[in-house]
Amino acid sequence: MNDMIVEYKRDIHKSILTNKVEKIIDTFIPKHDGANWQNGFGYQLTGISNSDIKKITIESGGIVSQFMEGKDREPGQDYPTIILFDNQKTAINKTFTVTIDVTQEKFTETAFIPFFNNDYWEKTYSKFNMNPFIIISSGTGRDKEAHIVKFPPTSKMNFSYFGTDSDVSKPDEGLYYVNSENMPTGLQISGVRVGTKRSADFLVPIEKTSILEAYPKFGAWASSFGASNGYWWKDPDNSKVITQ
């Protein structure tokens, strides 16, 4: 749970006349690299048609993903997919700004709010419109992804990895990235920055330390699929996390 940690924010711009979304600006800053190997990072607007996105502009300080093939989104994907970098070790603390121009007069702001939890919204839009993922061992290929628990892979993922080792994903049932202990492969925590201030920041677990040890309440949160201990990250074991 410390191979890659990325902070992000999303700004949604709407038309004054129609109140519909015109533009989205996503900002990402990789804050921690705990992996011994090379990993990439990207995200997909899962559920949003490619035709609904007019243009994507990426400001990255010169860092370019080979998987983008010089395009404004990754070719061969069912939904708009942006790969920000192929090697996290060259990207730490750099800012990546993605400007997405949306087809006008179609979407309300609600359609692009990440992880919004509302029955009407989930039936009307896709809860996966912000679907971040790590490309595992990106130096050796593009076919292995790690997403937030229950979030779907992109069309580049090799499905033969599902069901191996401790993974109990069931692609035919739409269940992805779940293991035999109900431990997720990726997390999203809203309104929190990476830092060293207990109860205010997310403190990074020390390398080779289980997140179950670093955050004693994490296990109950994960096994309940988020139903209990929603603020588990506020109570780390200070001896198991980076505090300075």
Score class of each variant (00 low, 15 high):
M1T: 12
M4N: 10
V6H: 02
Y8E: 02
R10K: 14
R10M: 04
D11Y: 04
S15N: 13
I16N: 15
L17K: 14
T18M: 07
V21L: 07
E22V: 08
T27H: 05
K31I: 01
K31Q: 11
K31S: 03
H32F: 15
G34L: 09
N36Y: 12
W37G: 15
F41P: 06
G42A: 07
L45Q: 13
G47F: 04
G47T: 03
K54R: 14
K54H: 09
K55P: 13
K55Y: 09
K55G: 12
K55L: 11
T57Q: 13
T57A: 12
I58L: 15
I58P: 09
E59P: 02
G61L: 03
G62N: 05
G62T: 00
G62K: 03
E69S: 15
G70H: 08
K71D: 09
D72P: 07
R73C: 07
R73A: 11
E74K: 14
E74T: 13
D78C: 07
Y79C: 10
P80E: 07
P80G: 12
T81G: 07
F85G: 05
F85C: 05
D86Q: 04
K89P: 05
N93S: 12
K94E: 09
I100R: 11
D101S: 14
D101W: 00
V102G: 11
V102F: 00
K106E: 06
F107D: 08
T108A: 03
A111L: 01
A111Q: 09
P114S: 06
F115G: 09
F115M: 11
N117G: 00
N117E: 13
D119Y: 03
Y120A: 14
E122V: 05
Y125K: 04
K127G: 14
N129E: 08
M130G: 02
N131W: 04
P132G: 10
S137H: 11
G139E: 05
T140G: 14
R142G: 00
R142Y: 09
R142P: 00
D143T: 12
E145D: 11
I148E: 11
F151V: 04
P153M: 02
P153S: 03
T154K: 05
T154M: 04
M157T: 07
M157W: 00
N158Q: 07
F159D: 12
T164E: 12
D165V: 05
D167P: 09
V168Q: 03
S169K: 04
P171R: 06
D172G: 01
E173V: 00
G174D: 10
G174P: 04
G174Q: 09
G174T: 03
L175G: 05
Y177M: 12
V178S: 08
S180G: 07
S180W: 00
N182D: 12
M183T: 10
M183H: 13
M183K: 14
P184V: 01
G186R: 00
G191F: 01
V194D: 05
V194F: 00
G195D: 03
T196F: 10
R198L: 06
S199G: 06
F202G: 08
V204D: 01
E207C: 12
E213L: 14
E213W: 01
A214R: 01
A214Q: 06
P216T: 01
P216H: 07
K217D: 15
K217F: 05
F218I: 03
F218T: 04
G219T: 06
A220F: 04
W221P: 02
S223C: 08
G226N: 07
A227T: 10
A227R: 15
S228D: 12
D235F: 02
D237Q: 06
D237T: 12
I242L: 13
T243I: 15
Q244V: 10
